[in-house]
Structure formats: structure tokens, C-alpha cells
Amino acid sequence: MAICVQNNQEYIHSKLFNIWRGIRRNTLTVIGFFIVIIFLLTALVGPLFVPYHYAEQNIAKRLQPPSAEHIFGTDEFGRDVFSRVVVGSRNVCVVAGSGAALAVFIGLILGLVSGYWGGLLDDLLMRLMEVMMAIPGLLLAMLVLFSLGSSFFSVILVVGFMYIPVVTRVVRSVVLDIKTRAFVEAAKLRGESIPYILLREILPNVLPHLAVEGSMRFVYAIFMVASLGFLGLGVQPPAPDWGFMVSEARPFFSVAPWVLFFPAASIAILVVGVSFVSDGLRRMLLPGGVSSDRY
């Protein structure tokens, strides 16, 4: 027996060693993590420090290149691009973040219920999800926003609902796997309540998958919010929206590329940053696993 008892000191050391090795191997994740932090900070406190109001027009100073006064230049109405990009980050982060969070929350509940109980409820839910996924995501979002009118909340709702099927399916498949494990059956045998089994036995094993999936949904939500904005169905003007800013700036591309460059670059950097974090999460939490759901 004695030879098997591992030295506690060595055990702790190896854990730290693993974490350090993980960070060293995941440079991109660390970069992505910093990008996300910077954007979230910008979204949270940035709007308090912007030099100009995002809607403040100054026709005399339209389409000015970046300068000390306007570090990202000005747009066709003479608005400060920097201020608009900073305030726009709030919209993207909050809308996409809330949409992803909504999808994760409802998808988690539906996935747990559907996976654990199975049967007719599960069948119906899965068919409903299939129907939802039969409509191209962007098209569905456009139709809904077009009919209901586009607002801060309707965009969140649309993005959230659009990603519920994907999250549900991921959670459901994990639940289907976990619920047949012996530890869940042992819990049933000793008479644990269903909430206990769902929340204390199954949920902890779902969380790593959910974290990875949630981060993936955040990436795609940013994608969706930006695309909707570009098509003019995002958060309505004059509130700044990166996608719409790009769309508005396109006619002036040859004379004032900066008006277009900064919001477009912001979208790109944020998307890439979150993707890196998501990938890192996947490698850390789900070694060997891949999610197969898209959009």
C-alpha cells in the first residue's frame, strides 16, 4: 500500500507545473484573453472617458484624417470616430454578450430537461430545434427584426433565440452521456431528488462543455450582431454600431479609409480575441473534444 501513496508536496508541484506548462503552450489564449479584457474594460468604462459625444456632429470637420484632436479621424458628419468606436464597443459587447448568455441559459435548461427526461418531450423539442435550424440564421434574424422593429432588446432576443438550439444540443448530448454513468445511477439508488441529480451530479460535468460552447456562441453572436448592423438591422442610429459604421463609411472609402478601418478592425480584433480564448478554453477544459455544431 505504502508505495502507492503519493507525496502531497510532489502532487501540488505537479499541479502548478501543469498550469504553467498550459500557459506557456497557450500563448494565443493569453493574447486573446488580454484582447477580451481590454474590450470589456472599454465597453464598461470607456464611454465615460471619450473626448466627444458619439452623436456630436461638426460638418466643418468632416472626413478628417486621424490627428491629435481626433485620433481615429472624423466621419462624413464630422463625428469623432474614436468616440463612436468606443461607445460602439458597449453595444457589441452587451448585445452579443447578453444574446450569448440568454442562449446559454435557456439552452442549458432545455438541454438538461430534454436530455434527462427524454421521451416525447425530448422528441418534440429536438424536432422544433431542427425546424429552427432549417431557416438560415441571418435570414431568420433579419425577418424577425424587420417585422418587430430593431431595438437594443429585440437584437438581444433574436441573437439569443437563434443560438438556443445549438446550445441545447450540446448540453443534451453531454447529459445523455453523463446520465448513464454509474455515479448518477448510484445517486438514484440512494434516493436523491431529481433537482439534486441534475444540479449536483450532472451539472458540474456539463459546465466545461457549456463554458466552451458559451464562448463559441459569444464569437458567433458578435459575428451576427455586426452583420445585422451592417445590413442596417442592428441597434438604430444615431447610436453607434460597428457594423453600421462600416456600412455608412463604404462610399467614402477612397477619400477617408480610416472611417471604415477602425470599426472594421475593432470587429476583427474582438472576434479573433474571443476565438482564441474559446479555443484555449476548449483545450484546457475538454482535452480531445470538438464541438461540431455551427452557426
Binding site: A182, F183, A186, L189, E201, P204, N205
Partner: peptide
């Protein structure tokens, strides 16, 4: 009570 076949699955890893 029951003792299961696969020891790896019989304890909740958390």
C-alpha cells in the same frame, strides 16, 4: 445498493 462495472464512471469526478 449496487456496485457497478466501470470504476471510472462510478464516482463523480467533481
Amino acid at each position: 445498493q449496487m456496485v457497478f462495472q466501470n470504476p471510472d464512471a462510478s464516482l463523480n469526478p467533481h
